[in-house]
């Protein structure tokens, strides 16, 4: 096992983590400010990917597609917030889970109705094709490096937005005391719609970026959604910092687990048996990590007030 391979795998874990962060940041913001648990966040991810694929196919430009994914996901988010989500803020979590579960069904079948049952095509833009050489003889794909870059920019941007701007101040106020900001004369309805659309846009961005690597198809959002929930629960629900740390932790643990566990089990069980058993344990690994963390820190690593 060479150093190059290990560096590459760590980068893979980081890239996976960054992608999860884009999903988890929106989820955790929405929970932190509005107290809402949104299962339909994966659908917004799917909408971003579909919008990007459709626009990129029509115009031939990935970048226009990327812009479209932000717009489409934000618009869908705002629309859903105004039509449905708004009525759920003062409901208990049970109603929220159920209503957003219903939204998943509606979005998934709706997308299939509009775009058909066959997966769509989306490729990475020509400038980002190819790989670069890194220290220690490692090769790494340029596009994945770019995703890591996007993640860092988004994380920094969110930090600045929340700590330095008026909107951020309101978000912080909303996280600590919902009644108070209404009393301060902030138009709370607009604030909520904006925050929801922001979270949706981040999910859409993630969907578009990942859609170019994977496949753009109905149902692509739910597996990522569940991982994003694991991330925010590990990080502490409502905390953007927690989402970042949790996402990278989950990304790296999952990637290294998939890579190392089969080798580890192969030592005891032989190659074929070890490969299947190792893979089985690897697929459960992040849930085990989550259970362990919550057993000791029931509110996650960086608990915001909940």
């Amino acid at each position: 096992m060479s150093t190059a391979l290990i560096i590459e795998q760590l980068l893979n874990g980081l890239q996976f983590g960054v992608m999860l962060f884009l999903m988890a940041a929106g989820l955790t913001l929405i929970f932190g400010v509005m107290g809402l648990i949104n299962l339909a966040h994966g659908s917004l991810y799917m909408i971003g990917a579909f919008a990007c694929a459709v626009v990129a196919a029509a115009t031939g430009s990935f970048w226009l597609g990327l812009a479209a994914s932000l717009v489409a996901a934000a618009a869908a988010g705002a629309l859903v917030e105004l039509a449905v989500i708004r009525r759920l803020y003062d409901r208990d979590h049970l109603d929220q889970v159920l209503a957003t579960f219903a939204l998943i069904l509606i979005f998934s079948e709706g997308a299939r109705w509009v775009f058909g049952s066959f997966p769509l095509y989306l490729d990475i833009p020509p400038v980002l094709q190819g790989a670069v050489s890194l220290l220690g003889g490692a090769h790494y794909q340029l596009y994945r490096l770019a995703i890591i870059g996007v993640g860092i920019v988004v994380a920094a941007g969110l930090y600045l937005l929340i700590s330095r701007t008026r909107l951020g101040m309101r978000i912080r106020a909303g996280q600590s005391d919902r009644e108070m900001i209404a009393a301060l004369g902030v138009d709370i309805g607009t604030l909520y719609t904006v925050v929801f659309a922001l979270g949706a846009a981040l999910a859409g961005l993630a969907g578009a970026l990942v859609g170019a690597l994977q496949s753009v198809q109905v149902g692509m959002g739910e597996p990522v959604l569940i991982l994003a929930f694991v991330v925010i629960v590990i990080g502490g629900i409502g905390s953007v910092k927690g989402a970042l740390v949790g996402a990278i932790l989950v990304g790296v643990v999952d990637t290294l687990g998939r890579f190392l566990l089969p080798k580890l089990f192969a030592i005891f069980l032989g190659p074929a048996e070890g490969a299947t058993t190792g893979a089985a344990v690897a697929s459960m690994l992040i849930y085990i990590v989550m259970a362990l963390i919550l057993a000791f820190r029931p509110k996650g690593l960086f608990a915001a007030n909940t």
């Binding site: 996976f16 090769h139 890579f259 190659p271 490969a275 893979a279 690897a282 697929s283």
Partner: peptide, 24 residues
């Protein structure tokens, strides 16, 4: 000869880790 035998998670959509192993 087999250069490697790998089983992935059902429904997995990111194969960066496996591709790195293939390369190596």
């Amino acid at each position: 000869e087999l250069a490697g035998e790998v089983y992935t998670k059902v429904g997995q959509t990111d194969y960066a880790a496996e591709i790195a192993q293939i390369r190596a």
